[in-house]
Write a protein that binds this DNA or RNA. Structure first.
Lengths: 104, 104
DNA sequence: TCAATTAGTCAAAAAAACATGACCACCAAC
DNA sequence: GTTGGTGGTCATGTTTTTTTGACTAATTGA
């Protein structure tokens, strides 16, 4: 059967889906760090105090599935993995920018 | 003592707080309905299939606390309560607009 | 060969969000 | 005075999200 990820609600509320893709305890911070360049799993754990492997792994996976981040195996000295903002992810900066005027 | 609602994280990630204020199962839809004019408690329950008193009440309260909605007692024939977008709430349309290009 | 760093997974527990059903008070019409 | 609409609260239960801790497996450097 053919299914999608949209609830009936989202059909009439486009923002809802995007909100879901960006929401969560760690995603906004990961996004922000990714703006400064590629991010890495263990580095994130150190940069995000209070975070944990599981949550960071889940956030990275979901952001990859949402086409916000792109996962790359870097064939260099200490072989490692990088997560970089996708084109769609980079375009989302505008969403974040639009939020920056509202610091209550 | 002086406290605020910001975690250490939010200090360095402004979007996080706004994201929190807009996230949740019903807030985006309530916001959207409020764009068309004042919304009312029982009307919302009818307009949001699958919703319930508790969740809608909580959403309205939190959006009021976040200065997105303003609660008004309308002194008219059948005395009732209206929730209207605050100035800040109206300004937030830009945030929603910025999300509308990303329908994956 | 041993230890550290890389990047994870898995099961389970704890915490947060959301839903259910009962109840309340006020007002108006019948 | 009972029914129906207004706008809720409260206690409880379920579901979702997040955390914890144990474990894995490949790579690297000494």
């Amino acid at each position: 059967m053919t299914t999608n990820n949209f609830s009936q609600d989202e059909a009439s509320c486009p923002a809802e889906g995007i909100l879901k893709q960006l929401s969560g305890k760690w995603k906004p911070q990961i996004f922000r760090l990714a703006l400064d360049g590629p991010v890495r799993f263990n580095a994130l754990l150190r940069q995000l105090p209070g975070s944990n492997k599981q949550s960071v792994a889940t956030a990275l996976k979901e952001m990859e599935e949402a086409d916000i981040l792109v996962k790359t195996v870097v064939q260099e000295k200490p072989l490692h993995i990088e997560y970089t903002l996708s084109e769609r992810g980079r375009a989302m900066v505008t969403v974040f920018r639009s939020m920056e005027g509202f610091l209550s």
